[in-house]
């Protein structure tokens, strides 16, 4: 048999494969530690002290959220502003807000939201993206969706729609009735409001550029 070169030696390639895989995996794990720290949820104290977190704490529902261009980063970021009433209150404690968010996140899973909508751009493409749904001008004071439900505020309009979606046919493609209760609807709306405050590196780009949601309601 001819002399074996290292390049045609299976053991060499087997070891290379193991090393490459191991190296990539270690790098991924290391990055995971860094990212996990950066995307852990903030606290009420962070919000009060104006500490910016990529994922703010659940009490962010006590504040007004806008989506504004950050000239340094070159894309829009959520900006947490002054206090704002949410279902008539702006003093949800960390426990209360946390419970609402918990209910809402659970609600988003048990109703299979992601199998029609996209959340953070992931999911199905049969219905609008919900990442910044809270900031959507259609739900704002001038918006057609708020007017349709006859409610005074954005959050009440959204909650009303979620409970009786087929009563408000917004499009030929309708949302089905999923048996969402009033409490669950409240949780879901706070989940949506919280999601709109997550720093998604400018996704979706130019959200509401034409209808003017970028600078808040």
């Amino acid at each position: 048999m001819a002399k074996r070169s290292v390049w045609s030696d299976n053991r060499f390639w087997q070891r290379s494969a193991a090393w490459v895989t191991g190296f990539a995996a270690v790098l991924l794990i290391w990055l995971t530690f860094d990212t996990s720290a950066q995307i852990s949820m903030g606290t009420d104290a962070d919000l009060k002290n104006g500490v910016t977190k990529r994922v703010p704490g659940p009490t962010v529902i006590n504040y007004k959220i806008t989506y504004e261009m950050d000239t340094k980063r070159g894309h829009e970021i959520p900006v947490i502003g002054e206090k704002e009433l949410f279902f008539g209150r702006d003093d949800y404690s960390e426990e209360e807000a946390g419970a609402l968010l918990h209910l809402g996140k659970l609600g988003s899973q048990v109703k299979n939201c992601m199998d029609c909508h996209t959340l953070l751009g992931n999911g199905a493409y049969y219905a609008p993206d919900l990442t910044k749904a809270w900031l959507d001008p259609a739900w704002g004071p001038e918006g057609s969706l708020q007017a349709m439900t006859g409610k005074e505020t954005k959050e009440e309009a959204m909650a009303e729609f979620l409970q009786h979606p087929s009563q408000y046919p917004t499009h030929e493609r309708m949302m089905p009735n999923l048996g969402i209760t009033a409490e669950e609807a409240k949780g879901l709306v706070s989940f949506l409001k919280h999601m709109s405050s997550i720093d998604t590196n400018g996704f979706p780009r130019n959200f509401g550029k034409i209808q003017g949601a970028v600078h808040g309601k």
Partner: peptide, 8 residues
Amino acid sequence: LDPSLIRP
């Protein structure tokens, strides 16, 4: 003229 056109 949109000030948002920072990033190309």
